[in-house]
Amino acid sequence: NFHSGLVKDISLLLNDSNYLNVTIHVGENENAEEFKAHSIILCARSDYFKCAFSNEWVTMNNNMITFNKPNIAPKIFEMILKYIYAGELDLTNQPGENILELLVASDELVIEELFEHLQDYL
């Protein structure tokens, strides 16, 4: 059983600039940020992204998939990315408002595991 090694290696990808092929513009106006990610990881972990990056819907810019997600705050999206890549979620020191926002975002993106966890947590 080599799961722990697998998870560790995959989670390291989050900070690995190689193979990045997605640029996600998160947030609106002054509260906006750009995230880079790997489409294959996002698709594997989320049906939402699987649809969004499918041939029918994807938009490419300079060989990069570009995707806008204006209604989620960058700090919330960062937590989602962490969950997606590493299966980790650290709610300590998070204000309730953030946790609520995270709940709403995970519902929209139909990340059921995360959504249910947060519901229980609240």
Partner: peptide, 15 residues
């Protein structure tokens, strides 16, 4: 004509 459409917007709309 789907290429002119945005998945994210339509999805959010329905959502």
């Amino acid at each position: 004509n789907a290429s002119i459409l945005s998945f994210e917007e339509l999805y959010r709309n329905a959502y």
